[in-house]
């Protein structure tokens, strides 16, 4: 069969592929960014059809089974308030936000448009890695808080997506440890809750124009009064 990636993705998401082809697609999804983007788009298109299946209340044991499996065998469950990474991350993010806000307060001329600040944290540890500050709608600055390790054959790519946008937009490649100024003149004005993230991509950037690699840092825009 000479299926285009989009046709293959559509039948994979629809569910009509036989077992062998399903596992082939799942293998390819790990490294084939074009196919992955096509699958993501089809998942979004067809998702509302899940509402056609009537909800069925699960039996009382199901949650207990899940809970046991999540806790793992004999593994003592650490309650969330004892998670060091969580508090370390929150404390770090709080401190950084304070410093950025203080800097903005001191440097910003009064009576300008509301501006935005974003703290980008590592998804797992919540450790802050970068901050973004925008003192106007036209330009943002991405400021590193340290030097992030990036594998030699990879690059960091900077993305943003506002609520209601079709998809994320690339803001270009970022060198670890360097401050980057990005003009936003071709994009809609910054808005509260706008998503920013850095992903690991090929040295020349994502081949699909959409993020494909693991997220290194992520955060959302917060309005500063």
């Amino acid at each position: 069969m000479n299926n285009t990636p989009d046709e293959l993705a559509s039948e994979y998401v629809l569910g009509t592929l036989p077992a062998e082809q399903r596992s082939e697609v799942e293998q390819r999804l790990m490294h084939d960014a074009e196919l992955r983007a096509a699958v993501d788009a089809w998942e979004q298109r067809l998702l509302p059809l899940t509402a056609l299946a009537e909800p069925v209340p699960p039996s009382a044991q199901l949650w207990r089974r899940i809970q046991r499996s999540v806790a793992g065998p004999d593994e003592a469950t650490v309650p969330w308030w004892n998670l060091l990474a969580l508090w370390r991350g929150l404390a770090g993010a709080g401190l950084v936000t304070t410093l950025v806000l203080a800097a903005l307060l001191l440097t910003r001329p009064p009576n300008t448009e509301p501006s935005f600040v974003v703290v980008l944290v590592a998804p797992q540890s919540q450790a802050p890695g970068w901050v973004i500050q925008a003192s106007n709608d036209q330009q943002i600055q991405l400021i590193p808080l340290g030097v992030m390790e990036v594998p030699a054959d990879k690059a960091l790519q900077f993305w943003t997506k506002g609520d209601g946008w079709q998809g994320p937009v690339s803001l270009g490649l970022v060198k670890p440890g360097q401050t980057l100024s990005v003009p936003l003149d071709k994009l809609p004005p910054l808005s509260a809750n706008q998503l920013f993230e850095l992903t690991l991509e090929d040295p020349r950037g994502s081949p699909t124009g959409k993020p494909t690699g693991p997220i290194q840092a992520i955060g959302r825009a917060v309005k500063v009064l």
């Binding site: 569910g15 899940t50 509402a51 299946a53 009537e54 909800p55 069925v56 209340p57 699960p58 199901l62 949650w63 899940i66 809970q67 999540v70 806790a71 469950t77 650490v78 969330w80 998670l83 990474a85 969580l86 991350g89 998804p123 797992q124 919540q126």
Partner: peptide, 26 residues
């Protein structure tokens, strides 16, 4: 992702019936 099991519990309460419905049809 931070290891908060309460969050997983909330998701379960929110969607387990709908997800079970989806899985049961198939």
């Amino acid at each position: 992702a931070r290891g908060d099991q309460q969050a997983l519990r909330r998701l379960y309460e929110q969607d387990s019936s709908r997800l079970l419905g989806v899985a049961l049809r198939i």
